[in-house]
Simulated assay, not measured.
Amino acid sequence: MAEFFRGRRLRRTAALREMVRENELRAQDLIMPYFVVDTGDATFRKPISSMPGQFQLSLQEFEKQVGKAVKNGLRGIILFGIPKKKDPAGTEGYAQDGIVQRAVRLCKQRWPELVVITDVCLCEYTDHGHCGLVRKERGIATVENDATLELLARTAVSHAEAGADIVAPSDMMDGRVMAIREALDEAGFTEVPVMSYAVKYASAFYGPFREAAESAPQFGDRKTYQMDPANSREALREATADVLEEADFLMVKPAGPYLDIIRMVRDEFDLPVAAYQVSGEYSMIMAAAANGWVNGDAVALESLLGIKRAGADIIISYFTEDLLERGLVK
């Protein structure tokens, strides 16, 4: 009889390791984010300097990019829009001919089976860069929660009207899932799911995204509505509230630094769990790979596998396109 555990028996060959592998990445697990710009320049394709390999795209360039990715096996996308003009109320966010609305219609015409998710927030469309309406009194600016809900609901309905498969509110206003669900139902979109950014932290890892979406706050920060990175029990309170308001998915953002939160949400709820591997996570891996400090492919795959192992069913990642194109995920 063996005197000690011989775990290496199941690691001896590649075939054995594959046979007993507990988790795997599949094409249908991954969502690719895109930044679509409202511009008259059909050839507009601007590299995002802090996110190597990522671009702001005109609608025409976006069509080319997605078309190529779909041929490589892309199953789902999430859209972020950059409007021609911004104002205090973010009106381009819920305009019927807004850039995201047009991008959605294009996608559903070209690739009906592609899952199109839309980010529902105002920060890309407001001139102050915050995720809701701002009230200023005695020199103090406050993001108004309840007044913002109506605009978020209008945005979600406009995306559904354009053909979005899923709407994903990322603003972190209290009650926005309920407001959006009620508005969708009243407009006849009872079958459109809500993927709530249920647990979204006020994270330093969002830095490169500010450039990509041109959404940096013009004053202050978002700590009054996004979560404190030190808190974990609060994550369950936020997720519970969204479940009660009829969210269909629960998202944790960022992903890598919050694997414990992903596991907590997975263990507590039976809804599908999404995780967003954010811009800072992507850019750090890309920078280390560019310097030859790590094997970029291996680290990217391992980071995504860690997110999956923690309990995420769906992962939003900027690595998606590249991994599919080179057959590293199928």
Rank of each mutant, 00 (worst) to 15 (best):
T118W: 03
F219A: 14
V157S: 01
N23T: 10
Y201I: 02
R75F: 07
D267K: 15
F209M: 12
T142W: 11
V37Y: 01
V104N: 00
R6P: 14
S279M: 03
I99G: 00
A162C: 10
Q109N: 11
L271C: 11
E18V: 04
F205G: 02
I48F: 05
G98S: 14
A300D: 06
W293M: 15
Y201P: 01
A235F: 02
V194P: 05
I166F: 12
N145K: 08
V115L: 15
A95Y: 02
V194F: 03
L244V: 15
L106K: 11
Q109K: 13
A247V: 03
E22W: 08
L304N: 05
S196Q: 04
F5Q: 13
R266T: 11
T224D: 13
D165S: 15
S50P: 04
L271N: 05
R17Y: 07
A288H: 07
E3K: 13
P88Y: 03
K46V: 01
D185V: 10
M286K: 15
A147V: 04
R326W: 10
S215L: 00
A2F: 10
S158W: 00
R102G: 08
T155M: 10
M172F: 02
S50N: 06
R210G: 04
A198Y: 09
A300K: 12
I261G: 03
I82E: 03
G40T: 08
R102A: 09
Y125G: 01
Y225Q: 00
H128S: 08
L57I: 06
L305M: 15
E268D: 02
A14D: 09
V70L: 14
A89H: 04
Y318L: 11
E214H: 05
K223A: 12
A247S: 05
G311L: 08
S279D: 07
V66D: 07
G132C: 09
M1A: 15
R12G: 08
L16T: 11
D267L: 14
D174I: 10
Y225R: 00
S50A: 14
G81P: 02
G175M: 04
S279C: 07
R233I: 08
I285T: 11
D322M: 11
V20I: 15
P229K: 13
Q60T: 09
M227D: 08
M173W: 05
A168L: 13
L244E: 15
H128T: 06
L271S: 07
M195F: 10
R210A: 04
W293Q: 15
Y225S: 01
G327T: 12
M19K: 14
G98M: 07
V36L: 06
A290C: 08
G292F: 13
I77A: 05
M19R: 14
S317L: 12
A27F: 08
G292L: 12
R102T: 09
E61C: 09
G132A: 09
S317G: 13
V70I: 07
Q54A: 05
V273T: 11
V167D: 01
P169R: 04
A216S: 13
F44K: 09
